[in-house]
């Protein structure tokens, strides 16, 4: 196996008395497409939110590019309430905000599309470049960063060309059809120049044709941008098609992991998820 890009280590996320993610361990290697699947409410999105810094985990650590970026342990009231494992193993508190995590090289999309509604397609992507800007507010306001700005615009232009949105770049983001909005959200994430792309149900609400297009699109961008992709998805066709490895969550716990073929024949997974809700 190649180099380890993302490592989730003993992550437990407990909200009050509810354990949403229980002792999750998973690894995403460089260049892989890894899927996280499971029934609704299994804690997939919670796991995503922990990795991207939206939630601070109750216990455990997250490693990215060989560096520990997130770590926490139960404190205060949570100390007595904590129901998970590995208590006491972690002593540091590392809680970067989501923007910091993004700047480290991890960009995400959202389950329910969150584009900047009043902005054009072009501006949506251009704004995502802001986190890579070197100029300060004065040099930006007085146009001393003209070179950087021009470079950014050229980059965005090229990016839109690659993802096939160049012809609609001056339209309002919200006026695009649904499938293209999804594509735009991915393009926006790519503009932040990530190593790891996190896709939260990229095919949610898509028809079979759009799903096929998306499957091809994800494969394409991985090749072109040398990305590692970690996704949550319910469309089993898409998941089985493109992922190299799959993790299955149920009630916050990891119940299986392996290649698509292994997962498809796993008894526990079929009982918990595949068997009952194939088309859900």
């Amino acid at each position: 196996m190649s180099e380890n890009l993302l490592k989730i280590e003993n992550i437990t996320m407990q909200f009050g008395g509810v354990v949403a993610v229980d002792n999750l361990n998973l690894e995403v290697n460089k260049g892989e497409i890894v899927a996280l699947i499971g029934p609704n409410g299994a804690g997939k999105t919670t796991a995503f939110n922990v990795v991207t810094g939206v939630y601070q985990p109750t216990n455990g650590a997250v490693w990215f590019q060989g560096e520990k970026i997130i770590e926490n342990h139960p404190q205060g009231k949570m100390k007595a309430m904590y129901k998970g494992q590995h208590a006491g193993e972690y002593s540091q508190i590392l809680a970067p905000t989501p923007d910091k995590v993004t700047r480290l090289g991890m960009a995400r999309t959202f389950q329910n599309i969150r584009l900047w509604k009043s902005q054009t397609v072009f501006d949506n992507v251009l704004i995502a470049k802001h986190c890579r800007v070197n100029s300060n507010v004065f040099s930006a306001a007085f146009r001393l960063n003209r070179k950087e700005e021009a470079e950014q615009r050229a980059n965005v232009e090229a990016l839109l060309e690659t993802v096939g949105l160049a012809d609609v770049k001056d339209e309002l983001a919200t006026s695009l059809p649904y499938g293209k909005q999804r594509r735009l959200e991915i393009a926006r994430a790519l503009a932040a120049e990530p190593q790891l792309l996190l896709l939260d149900e990229p095919a949610a609400g898509m028809n079979p044709q759009e799903t096929d297009e998306l499957t091809a699109f994800i494969g394409e961008i991985r090749e072109r941008f040398q990305l590692t992709i970690f996704l949550i998805e319910h469309h089993m066709n898409l998941v089985m098609d493109i992922s190299e490895r799959i993790y299955v969550l149920d009630f916050g716990e990891l119940i299986a992991q392996g290649t698509p073929a292994e997962i498809q024949n796993n008894k526990r997974v079929i009982d918990a998820y595949l068997g009952v809700s194939e088309d859900a």
């Binding site: 995400r108 959202f110 584009l115 509604k117």
Partner: peptide, 21 residues
């Protein structure tokens, strides 16, 4: 400028703005 665009992003969707760095 790029900062003004970031301001507008915060106005439109704070969560997305933060997620985009």
């Amino acid at each position: 400028s790029t900062y003004g665009r970031a301001f507008k992003a915060i106005r439109d969707d704070e969560v997305a703005a933060e997620a985009m760095g």
